[in-house]
């Protein structure tokens, strides 16, 4: 995901020197409305600490009592500081000014994506890679230290917590999920017991999802060598996915957007070919690495 914080607009509600304070209700309504609109807001009044400016452009809203510049540079000179006098303005009018400033400066508008993605609890993770092999959407990857990592958050399917359910160590969180321990609540003994008892994906599908689909196809080839029954295969896949949906709490729309059997098979074949290549290479060249890189595995 692109880091766009440096180009975003930071909104400050200023009530320090040379400005009049807002009424409590006015301030609360303004902060709430801006937050709901996806803006980050700093309340600055000369008391207590707030974060420094990270070279973002600042929009300073206040009821200024004297003359003020409409625009300035911050102390480092690498960000714009824009002042807006909000005296006498309604919350709606102030928010309009904020939106107009965002547009005028060509800054990205906030919102647009519900930040739904897995977060790994590395106190629990054993790097078993089950999540990597389970996820069909390339959310997971392996870093340079050969550690599992969440690399493509935006590819995660909103409201789908399925990978957390296949994790044998209860190490995958979705902070916006409703129930514990997936939501980040403390992992209790009963959760661990449940994980140990649950039907894992391998049991559910008779192997991992890729090998299951491959073996199903192989069986189908044997049985229907002269006439392939595509519709039966599709029905089987549908039944299998329906079972997954129930057991893993996968939303219907996610199942509808799963890669096709052909895509999955192609991916598996690609990974297998890479593995064969790597094996062949490791027999001729001494290779000190214990596992392949993500690129080599095609993930």
């Amino acid at each position: 995901m692109k880091n766009d914080s440096q180009s975003s607009l930071r909104v400050i509600i200023y009530e320090g020197a040379d400005s009049a304070p807002l009424a409590d209700s006015e301030r609360l309504e303004l902060v709430s409305t801006l937050l709901t609109g996806g803006y980050d807001v700093t309340l600055a009044n000369g008391r207590g600490l707030v974060r420094d400016n990270q070279a973002a452009s600042l929009l300073v809203l206040g009821k200024f009592s004297g003359d003020m510049p409409s625009q300035a540079s911050d102390a480092q000179g690498d960000g714009q500081v824009i002042f807006e006098d909000i005296a006498g303005l309604s919350t709606e009018a102030i928010v309009s000014k904020v939106e107009a400033t965002v547009e005028r400066l060509g800054k990205p508008s906030p919102g647009g994506w519900k930040p739904w993605f897995p977060v790994i609890d590395f106190d629990r993770c054993t790097n078993c890679m089950q999540c990597l092999s389970f996820c069909l959407f390339d959310v997971y990857a392996v870093d340079k230290q050969e550690q599992i990592t969440v690399q493509n958050q935006e590819k995660c399917k909103t409201d789908c917590p399925a990978c957390s359910r296949v994790c044998p160590e209860v190490a995958i969180l979705f902070p916006k999920y409703g129930k514990g321990p997936i939501n980040g609540d403390v992992v209790r003994e009963s959760d661990i017991q449940r994980e140990a008892m649950k039907i894992d994906v391998s049991a559910l599908l008779g192997g991992d999802i890729y090998s299951s689909l491959r073996s199903r196809q192989s069986d189908a080839r044997k049985r229907f060598s002269t006439e392939r029954d595509e519709s039966k295969a599709l029905l089987e896949r549908k039944r299998c996915l329906k079972k997954l949906q129930g057991d893993l709490d996968i939303p219907n729309e996610i199942l509808m957007s799963l890669p096709s059997a052909g895509d999955i098979q192609e991916r598996a074949e690609r990974a297998k070919a890479k593995a064969v290549q790597r094996l062949a290479r490791s027999q001729t060249v001494k290779d000190t690495r214990s596992t392949a890189t993500p690129e080599e595995w095609g993930i």
């Binding site: 980050d40 700093t42 309340l43 009044n45 000369g46 008391r47 707030v50 974060r51 739904w116 993605f117």
Partner: peptide
């Protein structure tokens, strides 16, 4: 008290 309010830490 001065503070930072973020729309969403996630």
């Amino acid at each position: 008290v001065a503070f930072d309010a973020f729309a969403d830490l996630c």
